[in-house]
Design a binder for these strands. Structure first.
Lengths: 160, 160
DNA sequence: CGTCACACTGGGCAGATTGCCCAGTGAACA
DNA sequence: TGTTCACTGGGCAATCTGCCCAGTGTGACG
């Protein structure tokens, strides 16, 4: 579950140059190919690396508007709301949270006007009491993992 | 920028079986290998497919706690806050938003107790006036793109 | 102090895939 | 009608993959 420095370097290398291949990685890292292969297998079976799916940009698909909606759910309707939101393609992710809202979801839309349609569809469901939406203007830090991987690798090295 | 049905099938196939390779894709989709290759090249140069980086699970790295923090920023300090948050590895992404807060960031931590440390580090900066944190309990809909891709592909087909 | 398990090395092998090339075809379009 | 474009189907050398092996070093454990 914890990763060492070599694991970290493998992940970072893979993140920077995804098409790199095991052989080239082993050359860059100065280890045997079998080692890289074994590490990769382990990282994947550990679940540290979930997969290598394509990273699709919603904006390039025609959905340049992103928003976060905080939802308040009527007691006992959680499961129904989850099922409902799962059917909306513009709902990219959904979390249940502590705090003022009960759920937080990430939405995309074709435009600000289209966002209204999406929100209507999201909240047009019985179990949802209230929704507060925040439109994303800028994304100074896009979803990233490398700094965390490096920290995790360093911690591990420090401890062992 | 818009994608057609074949593009959609390529992306979905790739999302489901990332290791699949161009040749096998062409077999599954019933088109020539060159076609798949050309489509993929176009999707990547379009920016629709950003890349194929490894999808790393923070939980498996030892960071099982996720939270969203809404930050209020002192006027004119936005750039400084951005730069500060970019240096915190546990900040996985950062958005500037409309609405009650000025920024929304996704955090991870090793435990609920550790989350306190992360939040202290995040808000331990002059430009941040207030922070409201919501801890994620469940993630009923993990970050996904396939339904949106399918919708985008269908729309395109319908129009053209 | 042995013994064992484990990870890593360095090598080899056949088979598959990739990147690249080409000519031909059909459809859309000026 | 002529041109452009995407797609097809094929071929080629080079590369990589998955798989195997024996040898080595190290740490854990009896």
């Amino acid at each position: 579950m914890a990763i060492d420095h070599l694991d970290g370097r493998i992940i970072v290398l893979l993140a920077r140059e995804p098409r790199i291949g095991v052989l080239e990685m082993s050359r860059r890292l100065g280890v045997a190919r079998g080692t890289v292969q074994a590490r990769l297998d382990r990282l994947q079976s550990n679940g540290v690396i979930r997969g290598f799916g394509p990273q699709v940009d919603p904006a390039a698909l025609g959905y340049p508007v992103t928003a976060f909606a905080t939802l308040q759910i009527r007691q006992g309707q959680g499961a129904d709301v989850r099922a409902h939101l799962a059917t909306v393609p513009e709902v990219l992710e959904l979390h249940t949270t502590t705090g003022t809202g009960d759920m937080l979801c990430r939405l995309v839309a074709r435009s600000n006007a289209d966002l209204q349609r999406v929100i209507d569809r999201v909240v047009g469901f019985d179990g949802i009491v209230r929704a507060a939406t925040a439109i994303v203007m800028e994304n100074p830090v896009p979803l990233r993992i490398i700094p965390l991987v490096e920290q995790a690798a360093d911690n591990r090295d420090g401890r062992e």
